[in-house]
């Protein structure tokens, strides 16, 4: 491959990876925008989502890469798996909110954040124990078709990931911008107390935000599994931290910002690994995180949530 082809190829890879981060970052941003809470449990919801998708795909009789589907059956299987994963992850997020975070809502300081760390640890270790810490082979029913565009290989897999991610993000954006519930969500993010006085059911809005964020995290988990062909208890942590960086980079609380941040972080990871060294990729990403927070806390696109103190 020529130099420019390598570069373009890494861009393709980076965008795919970035789509996963962006989906995950949206959950951070939704919850932070409304509750000003960094939800560490989100890391684990993503990971659990990957395993839910794995189980659903296996239930269709797909094991490893042996079974390849085409046409309508492929679309149907993936769609069913996606919907089940999103609903299950969303429900998990709602349960986490209802039983561990709602009682903490009016507690000041780092208490609620510590609770989310605890929840994350519980999920993480349950999966670790259940899988014996092994990486599990993720079913891949997609045909290995690929397209060569000017020396760059784009796999069918990637095209599907882009389409699904874009659809989910556009859907979320429309939901937040156009629907009544989305408007209520933005109102709560601005001022929960005022929104409550205007008749907004804040608990309901928070629940919807957790559901939507967690459902997207589940979708991201499934995409991750399909893309890398494995699922493991530890995937939540690395991906979660990068997605959080993406949310901060884009401007936390800002929905388009999370998408932009995800893509940027995905590109930095692939290009950084290509041109600097993979082992330093994390250092680069965390330096961006710290640098953004220190020098431009509002992120690239600015914070939409006001700075309540």
């Amino acid at each position: 491959m020529t130099g420019s082809a390598i570069f373009l190829q890494q861009i393709v890879n980076g965008v795919s990876l970035g789509a996963v981060y962006a989906l995950l970052a949206l959950g951070f941003t939704l919850v932070y925008g409304i509750l000003e809470l960094i939800n560490f449990a989100h890391f684990s919801v993503f990971m659990v989502g990957a395993f839910v998708a794995l189980v659903v795909l296996q239930a269709f009789g797909l094991q490893g890469q042996s079974v390849v589907l085409h046409g309508a059956p492929l679309v149907l299987v993936l769609l069913v798996a996606l919907v089940v994963t999103m609903v299950a992850s969303g429900a998990l997020g709602v349960m986490i909110e209802r039983y561990t975070l709602r009682p903490m809502r009016n507690v000041k300081g780092p208490m609620a954040m510590i609770t989310t760390i605890g929840v994350s640890y519980i999920l993480f270790n349950l999966v670790l124990l259940a899988t014996n810490a092994q990486a599990i082979n993720f079913p891949d029913p997609m045909p290995a078709a690929s397209y060569h565009v000017g020396g760059v290989v784009i796999r069918l897999k990637e095209i599907l990931i882009w389409i699904v991610s874009a659809a989910l993000m556009v859907g979320l954006n429309l939901f937040v911008k156009r629907t009544r519930l989305g408007k209520a969500m933005r109102a709560v993010a601005q001022d929960a107390e005022a929104a409550r006085m205007m008749g907004v059911d804040v608990d309901h809005v928070v629940m919807i935000a957790f559901f939507a964020g967690s459902a997207l995290a589940g979708a991201a988990g499934m995409i991750f599994g399909l893309y890398y062909n494995f699922a493991q208890y530890s995937i939540g942590y690395t991906a979660g931290l990068r997605a959080f960086t993406a949310a901060v980079l884009g401007g936390i609380g800002n929905v388009p910002g999370a998408m932009l941040g995800g893509i940027v972080i995905g590109l930095i990871e692939t290009l950084g690994s290509q041109y600097i060294a993979a082992r330093w990729a994390d250092v680069i990403i965390f330096s961006i995180l710290i640098g953004t927070l220190v020098f431009r806390p509002a992120g690239l696109l600015g914070m939409l949530a006001p700075n309540r103190s």
Binding site: M113, W280, S309
Partner: peptide, 26 residues
């Protein structure tokens, strides 16, 4: 970093806690 709001500090320290072992490894 300590000028940052408390919850940001958590994530910044998390990043720092990641960087140091990576530097040590590399």
């Amino acid at each position: 970093t300590l000028r940052l709001k408390g919850d940001y500090l958590a994530i910044v320290t998390l990043g720092f806690g990641e960087i140091v072992p990576i530097v040590v490894r590399n």
